[in-house]
């Protein structure tokens, strides 16, 4: 009897510790800017899902490409149909590791390197970027900026409009994570 109660306690403890190492948000903000002097091209989505595992120092991030909103419906159509090809590749995702150890109990913003693979438009690329992470008791905040070139993800931009779209696209991410409760 005592044995089984102990067992249940251990299992319960094990489960809570697993759950507590995960922090999640499904409302992360992601925007990108590929403006040039000719055209302002800014798009935003508030529906990126991201998870941090503070035991493994792993960050996962994914967004559905059709959830990006542009200033003009025409831009959205071009982005989804011609460039990112949402019907074929509906998801963009990243999985990576935080480069240096973080004291998750210290509520101070730290700047860390994150390295991992970014998959977009069906192309997988190893990238490293800086991220600012602020641990907290009930939440973790994180923000980052990633610079990518459309061509490195096999996104072909016709020469007729090449001058309208920036050569380097800046992706900004802001997320506030809460403990994952199942």
């Amino acid at each position: 009897m005592i044995k089984s109660i102990l067992l249940i306690c251990f299992v319960a403890l094990g489960l809570t510790s697993v759950a507590q190492s995960l922090y999640i948000t499904k409302d992360a903000k992601i925007n990108f800017n590929s403006s040039t002097t000719v055209e302002d091209i800014v798009a935003e989505s508030n529906q990126a899902t991201t998870i941090i595992d503070i035991d493994k120092n792993v960050i996962k991030f994914s967004v559905l490409t059709t959830s990006f909103k542009f200033r003009r419906a025409l831009m959205e159509e071009h982005f989804n149909e011609n460039y990112i090809e949402s019907p074929k590749f509906p998801k963009a995702s990243f999985t990576g590791k935080i480069g240096s150890p973080i004291d998750w109990k210290n509520e101070k913003t730290v700047s860390v390197d994150v390295t991992g693979s970014l998959t977009m438009h069906g192309v997988n690329k190893e990238i490293t970027f800086k991220a600012n992470i602020t641990p907290g008791k009930s939440k973790i905040s994180a923000s980052s900026e990633i610079v990518v070139t459309p061509e490195s993800f096999n996104i072909q931009i016709p020469s007729a409009v090449r001058d309208k779209i920036a050569k380097e696209v800046t992706i900004k991410i802001e997320a506030v994570y809460a403990p994952y409760q199942q």
Binding site: K26, Q47, T49, V63, L64, T66
Partner: peptide, 12 residues
């Protein structure tokens, strides 16, 4: 409009 699935299926 169905946007696809991450953890959940997103309808926008």
């Amino acid at each position: 409009r169905c946007a696809g699935k991450l953890m959940d299926i997103q309808i926008i």
